[in-house]
Design a protein around this nucleic acid. Structure first.
Lengths: 160, 160
DNA sequence: GGACGGCTACTCGGATATCGCTTGTCCGAGTAAATGCGG
DNA sequence: CCGCATTTACTCGGACAAGCGATATCCGAGTAGCCGTCC
């Protein structure tokens, strides 16, 4: 099982926007340069955040992406759902109904498949933990370990 | 993010072996027929369980796969790790060191990346929940909802 | 009748194709600033 | 000097290719049972 790289990319992009602080838009090309990422593909990923309502975009000169709401109101769950999609990692294909189970009465399938339920329980714990952490929490943790990161980012983008 | 279908397949295969109860080997072809799955590919997936030490295999006539230990000693984590591999879904590529972070002193990177740590925390909750459930628990849940499933499986394989 | 050797059929195991999704790139539509011109 | 129309450059957005891992299949190596033969 593998999570797309886009999640990591946009999380660092959100941190950058948070460090800049002002509500000024930042183009995807600048965002990519600051994190050494492919500009065009990062742009594509950021579009997903716009569709999810986490960012707003502006075209033309002085345009770019800006936060739609404070980082403290954006959870990791929001970000993962925006990039990876809303459906679960484990998908039940109702194997229990097939093969030897085909002869079973429908009443036996009233409850969800036990395998699916067990996997769903684990995945729910994952989602709960993602929803419990905001990007602002991550930014605070990063600041506590590397206090000058924010200043470097602001300087890189000429906003200090 | 998407989990491979093999996980679902082998979980149902393990349930089948548990329902049969006796320690007799069951060929992959029979397991596939009982769950309506592609025989050759299921065989490939079961090999991964053998490598992980969850199953033992026997060649030749009267051969097949059997449980290496009781289902109560096989957790969902064991199964997922056997099929999907041991590495985590989220992989940190150390974006913090790149771009504007390239100029930072190494001391700022002593602690793990905050993004990676946050994602790891969520994934740990997932793994913890997987490790807390055994396949025997899943089998018990299935039995409670569909009491005749085990009998149907035994009859299908001529072992009642 | 019993034992032994060869044969047959069956099973796993890994090497080999195929498919779909993630990754990656590109160009066009739209927009806001800059510019030049006229008043 | 000020206002306005035009030009220009910049940005996002989605359409279009490429690479890679998961999916699926097949055939060979090995093994256990079976059969025929010989003692």
């Amino acid at each position: 099982m593998r999570m797309g790289e886009g999640v990591e990319w946009v999380l660092h992009s959100l941190l950058t926007l948070g460090w800049l602080g002002d509500g000024e838009p930042l183009p995807a090309a600048r965002l990519a340069a600051g994190n050494d990422l492919p500009p065009a593909y990062l742009n594509k990923q950021l579009q997903a955040l716009v569709r999810a309502g986490l960012l707003t975009s502006t075209s033309g000169p002085r345009g770019g992406f800006r936060l739609a709401r404070p980082l403290s109101e954006i959870t990791l769950m929001d970000v993962v759902a925006a990039i990876e999609g809303p459906d679960e990692a484990f998908r039940c294909t109702e194997i229990r109904r097939r093969g030897s189970g085909a002869a079973a009465p429908d009443s036996e399938f009233a409850e969800p498949c036990a395998v699916s339920a067990a996997m769903r329980r684990a995945e729910l714990a994952w989602r709960r933990e993602l929803a419990a952490q905001t990007v602002a929490d991550v930014l605070a943790a990063a600041d506590s370990h590397a206090p000058s990161a924010g200043r470097r980012v602001r300087r890189f983008h000429g906003r200090d």
